[in-house]
Simulated scan of single mutants.
Amino acid sequence: MRLSTVILPIRRWHDKGREVWQRAEELGFHTAYTYDHLSWRTFRDTTWFGAVPTLTAAAAATRRIRLGTLVTSPNFRHPVTLAKDLMTLDDISGGRVTLGIGAGTTGFDATVLGQDPWSARERADRLAEFVPLLDRLLTEPAVTHRGTYYSADEARNIPGCVQRPRLPFAVAVTGPRGMKLAARHGQAWVTTGDPALFESGTPEQSHAAIRGQIDRLGAACAAIDRDPGELDKVLLTGFTPERDRPMSSVDAFVDFAGRHAELGITEIVVHAPIPDSDFDTDPAVYERIATEGLAQLRA
């Protein structure tokens, strides 16, 4: 089991921004992720910086911790320009970048460029074209592609990623088409549980839903003769029926993480504390979870 964190891009870099990323490394988190949005929910009218520049600054300010997005989507990204940014970020970080990627939602990012929000089917269609093209762009020195939604004309990405054959993809999907994408292109799979259970579901129902998701991922891997054990299974916390309870104490976290490890989850991601928000965790408890939580789980 690995323990990682999400650091939302809400702090000016020279006013606590740098410190929170460096502290995540000091605490021993495996990866520090950030959301790749242009704005997000209750933070829409407050400070919110771009994901790639933030991760670039974090790469320069740290040495060991992995860095990544959780998650990037096609809502406002194009695979050609994203690939160039990712290759550069991977170089600056010395090969410490993971791309979390998903289909996106109907939130603010879906209309910020002036387009109508895409249907669930179109989001899935776009992701199904976006991921394989991005895979090629990060592994081949020159790519030409003519697709339904995305094109590339002799797009160059030289010298390629530090990580070979490319930086890893953590694919955030739950539907059958998405599971096929994760099985074929992913090095990890990401879930937040079943959104339908968030408001009124029970922990037991959530566990059953996640178990079913992992089973479907395994079936998608089996269909292409891939060992599902090759993929990390990542749970982003805060969106299951237990909500913020796992962050209430070290014991509560150990119980939560242990039950999800039994389901097959290999990485738990918790949010760095943000006062007066949905992520208003006690900073002392957050730090104790980072330094003691996994040790207790493994004891």
Rank of each mutant, 00 (worst) to 15 (best):
M1N: 09
L3F: 10
S4K: 00
I7S: 06
L8K: 07
R11V: 00
R12W: 04
D15K: 15
A24M: 13
L27E: 03
F29E: 01
H30G: 01
Y33H: 05
Y35S: 07
D36L: 08
L38Q: 13
L38S: 09
T42D: 14
D45C: 05
T46D: 11
T46W: 05
T47W: 04
T47S: 12
W48D: 01
W48K: 02
F49V: 00
P53S: 11
P53Q: 07
T54Y: 05
T54P: 03
T54E: 13
L55S: 04
T56F: 14
A58N: 01
A58R: 00
A60T: 15
R66M: 04
L67C: 07
T69P: 08
P74M: 02
P74I: 05
N75H: 11
N75A: 15
F76R: 07
P79N: 12
T81V: 12
L82C: 02
D85I: 00
S93C: 04
G94M: 08
G94I: 05
V97W: 03
I101E: 02
G104A: 02
D109K: 09
D109Q: 09
L113E: 13
Q115E: 13
Q115Y: 04
A120R: 14
A120D: 15
A120W: 09
R123S: 09
A124I: 10
A124T: 15
A128L: 02
A128Y: 00
L133G: 01
D135N: 15
L137C: 05
T139N: 06
E140C: 05
P141Y: 06
H145A: 06
G147P: 11
T148N: 14
Y150W: 08
A152H: 11
A152D: 10
A152R: 07
D153F: 12
E154K: 14
N157V: 12
N157Q: 02
G160L: 09
G160T: 00
R164E: 11
R164P: 08
L167P: 08
P168N: 10
V171T: 01
G175H: 09
P176N: 04
M179H: 11
A182L: 01
A183D: 08
R184E: 13
R184H: 07
H185D: 01
H185N: 06
V190W: 00
T191K: 06
T192E: 07
F198H: 12
F198R: 15
T202C: 11
E204W: 02
S206I: 00
H207P: 03
I214Y: 07
D215F: 06
R216H: 13
R216A: 15
R216I: 02
L217H: 11
G218A: 12
A220N: 04
C221R: 02
I224L: 14
G229R: 09
E230G: 15
K233W: 00
T237G: 14
F239S: 13
F239R: 14
F239I: 02
D244L: 07
S248K: 12
D251L: 07
F256T: 00
H260K: 06
A261T: 08
L263A: 09
L263F: 04
E267M: 10
H271A: 15
P273N: 08
D278L: 15
F279A: 11
D282Y: 05
R288M: 01
R288C: 00
A295S: 12
Q296G: 03
A299K: 14
A299S: 15
